[in-house]
Design a protein around this nucleic acid. Structure first.
Length: 290
DNA sequence: TCCCAGGCTTGGT
DNA sequence: ACCAAGCATGGG
């Protein structure tokens, strides 16, 4: 018997959870806003929510809420201590980043989906990444329902993210044609086959340290240091990851010009140990929205 | 027409 | 170890 959709109300100021920021922070590609509600799709699950007065109203089952979404939104991590440490470090660029990014969080996304979407992200732009992921889901995922309210008329539909098994069974042509994947299709198909045959174990990946996970991820064709760090950060929630892309390189040039790239990385690792990934996220957002 | 996009692989030193 | 070219695709 299917469990009942409920309205789950959470008292939560915007400074602790700002979906608008998170949605536009380049960490997630299946979060959108329509008709005043936020919709999030992750793996084979979906949720809708909105802000009303001083609280957020989430529409889902008690089970999915407790067993999936609380963890997904990382509601058990205290970001205020990160912000406090940033304030104490007296880094002007970072303090400005923090002011703009009150309510930023690092989502705990589905691992397989994170791996694929960040392989897609290389040499690509954010709108096109979102569009490509959407096409993959519509074409190879399964249609499922979710609710934006408590009434039967509030039903909506979405497509799940295609599993590794599903993708592994596609031909390269089917995966490539009209999906905008380009040369990345081969990377994804090859990895999907390795996951299906358990030559590349996603379960095993979850139990590794940052260094071990990076090494294993970079053994995959199509995953280098930047994409590997994104997967560690968003798919494994290893907050010591610090992805350096073109925007972060520009930040180092423009705003930390006293450091070489190596010196800068040492500066970040020593001053923001254990939450470098959060630091990166707010810097990235700030630079892109100056 | 050329340039760029949350880079990576490959093949040259 | 480091460096440049090539890479699919769509948008400015």
């Amino acid at each position: 018997m299917p469990s009942k959709i409920r309205k789950i109300c959470v008292e939560l100021p915007k400074t602790l959870f700002n979906p608008e920021l998170i949605m536009n922070s380049g960490q997630v590609f299946r979060m959108l806003k329509k008709q005043g509600m936020y919709h999030v799709y992750s793996g084979d699950k979906a949720i809708a929510f909105k802000r009303r007065a001083n609280q957020y109203e989430f529409y889902t089952t008690i089970e999915d809420w407790n067993e999936f979404w609380v963890n997904y939104f990382d509601f058990n991590t205290d970001y205020s201590k990160f912000n406090e440490a940033i304030r104490n470090s007296k880094d002007e660029f970072l303090e400005n980043s923090m002011k703009m990014c009150q309510g930023m969080r690092i989502l705990r996304q589905d691992l397989w989906e994170t791996i694929v979407t960040f392989i897609i992200s290389q040499q690509n732009n954010i709108p096109k990444i979102s569009k490509t992921v959407e096409i993959l889901c519509e074409r190879f995922g399964s249609k499922r329902s979710y609710y934006t309210g408590l009434n039967t008329k509030d039903i909506q539909y979405f497509y799940t993210f295609p599993s590794a098994d599903r993708i592994a069974n596609l031909s390269l042509k089917t995966l490539s044609d009209g999906t905008m994947l380009g040369y990345r299709a081969e990377y994804i198909l090859e990895l999907a086959k390795a996951v299906k045959s358990n030559k590349f174990s996603l379960e095993e990946l979850q139990n590794l340290t940052y260094e071990e996970a990076m090494k294993k991820l970079q053994s995959v064709k199509g995953i280098g240091p930047k994409v590997g760090n994104c997967i560690c950060l968003y798919g494994l929630h290893l907050l010591e990851s610090y992805p350096i892309d073109t925007w972060m390189k520009k930040i180092i040039e423009d705003d930390y010009s006293q450091y070489s790239l190596e010196e800068y990385k040492l500066y970040i690792d020593s001053n923001y140990k254990g939450f470098q990934g959060y630091v990166q996220q707010i810097q990235f957002y700030y630079k892109r929205n100056l």
